[in-house]
Structure formats: structure tokens, C-alpha cells
Lab assay of single mutants.
Amino acid sequence: HDVTIHAGDKTIHVHGASEEFLRIIEQAKRDGIHEEELLRLIEELVK
């Protein structure tokens, strides 16, 4: 999957995102996670 995530003034493109990655991001959004926290989460996941 190619994913584009908008968080605040940043746009992150993730190529080859796994289903698990997508679920984590969707869950985080539903939980109302702060955008900066979401960015950190994404950066950890894509290392």
C-alpha cells in the first residue's frame, strides 16, 4: 500500500505500508492521538 498521511503541516508518504501499519494509524486517529505523537509513531514504524 502507498499511504499519504497528513499530520498538521506535514505530509508523510509511506510506500509499501503493511496492513498492520494501516490499522495502527487508523486506530491512532480514532483514539484522537495528537498529530505530533502520530508523527513519532509513524517514524518508529517506518525505520
Rank of each mutant, 00 (worst) to 15 (best):
T4N: 06
L38W: 06
L38V: 03
A17C: 01
I42Q: 00
L22M: 13
D2E: 11
I5L: 06
E26T: 08
A17M: 14
E36K: 11
E37D: 13
L38K: 00
V3F: 12
E44R: 11
H6W: 03
R40A: 11
I12T: 04
I25H: 00
E43M: 15
I12K: 01
Q27S: 08
H34V: 13
E44H: 11
L38S: 00
K29S: 09
L41G: 00
A17Q: 05
E44A: 12
L22H: 04
L39M: 12
D9C: 06
A17K: 01
E36V: 13
V3H: 05
K47Y: 12
E19D: 14
H34F: 11
A17G: 04
G32L: 05
V3L: 12
E43C: 13
D2W: 15
K29A: 10
R23M: 09
L39T: 04
L22K: 06
T11V: 14
H34Y: 09
E35A: 14
E26W: 10
L45W: 15
I25F: 09
D31N: 12
K10W: 06
E43K: 11
Q27P: 00
A17D: 02
G16Y: 07
G8R: 00
E26R: 10
D2R: 13
E26L: 14
A28L: 13
E43Q: 13
K47D: 07
G8N: 05
V3I: 15
E19Y: 10
A7S: 07
G32V: 02
I42E: 00
S18N: 09
D31W: 10
K10Q: 09
V46D: 03
S18W: 08
E36W: 15
V46A: 10
I33L: 13
V46G: 07
A28F: 14
G32H: 05
V46F: 13
H6I: 15
L45K: 01
H6Y: 04
E35N: 12
E36M: 14
E44S: 13
I24A: 11
E20T: 08
F21T: 08
H6F: 03
K10S: 08
I33D: 01
K29W: 12
G8A: 06
K47A: 13
I24T: 08
A7D: 04
V46R: 07
E35L: 14
G16K: 03
V3A: 05
S18K: 04
V3T: 06
I25S: 00
I12G: 01
R30D: 04
R30Y: 09
H1W: 13
I25P: 00
I42S: 00
V14G: 01
L41W: 05
L45V: 05
I25A: 00
T4A: 05
I5F: 03
E26A: 12
G32K: 05
L22W: 13
E26F: 09
H15C: 07
S18I: 05
V46Y: 10
I5C: 02
E44L: 13
L41Y: 04
V3C: 06
H13L: 10
T11P: 04
H34A: 15
I12D: 01
L39D: 01
G16V: 07
E20F: 09
E26D: 09
S18T: 14
K10D: 03
E43Y: 15
I33C: 03
E43W: 15
F21P: 00
E19L: 14
A28Y: 14
L41C: 01
D31V: 06
H13S: 08
K29V: 15
T11K: 06
G8Q: 04
V3Y: 07
K29H: 10
I33R: 04
I33P: 01
G16H: 10
V46K: 05
H6T: 14
R30F: 11
V14T: 02
I42L: 09
E43G: 08
I5E: 02
V14Q: 01
I24P: 00
F21I: 11
I42R: 00
T4K: 05
L45H: 08
T4I: 15
E37S: 09
G8K: 01
H34D: 14
H1C: 09
L41V: 03
E36T: 13
R40W: 08
D9I: 04
V46L: 15
D9A: 06
R23I: 07
I25D: 00
K10Y: 10
V46M: 15
K29M: 15
H15Y: 05
A17W: 11
S18E: 03
L41H: 01
V14P: 01
D9L: 06
K10N: 08
T4G: 02
D2A: 12
T4Q: 07
G32D: 05
L22E: 04
L45Q: 03
D9K: 06
G8D: 05
G32S: 04
L22A: 06
H1I: 15
H15E: 07
R23T: 06
A28S: 06
I24Y: 05
L39Q: 05
D2L: 13
S18P: 07
E26Y: 09
D9M: 06
T4S: 06
H34T: 15
Q27K: 12
E36G: 11
R30L: 13
V14C: 02
L41N: 00
K10V: 12
D9T: 08
L39K: 04
K29I: 15
G8E: 03
E36R: 12
H13A: 05
F21R: 01
R23P: 01
I25K: 00
T4Y: 05
L39A: 07
I5N: 02
K47E: 08
I42C: 01
T11E: 10
I24K: 09
H13T: 14
H15T: 11
K47N: 13
A28H: 04
F21H: 05
L41T: 01
I24W: 10
R40T: 07
G16T: 06
K47S: 12
L38C: 01
A17V: 15
D9S: 10
G16R: 02
E35Q: 12
D2T: 15
H13Q: 09
G16Q: 09
E43H: 11
K10I: 13
D9V: 03
E37N: 08
G32Y: 04
G32A: 04
I33S: 03
T11G: 05
I12C: 03
E20K: 04
E44T: 11
E44Q: 12
G32T: 02
I42N: 00
H6E: 11
D9R: 03
L39I: 13
G32F: 04
R40F: 07
H13C: 05
I42G: 00
L39Y: 14
I42M: 05
A7T: 10
H6N: 11
L39S: 04
K10M: 12
A7C: 09
S18H: 05
L39R: 06
H1P: 09
T11L: 13
R40C: 03
Q27M: 11
D31H: 08
L45C: 03
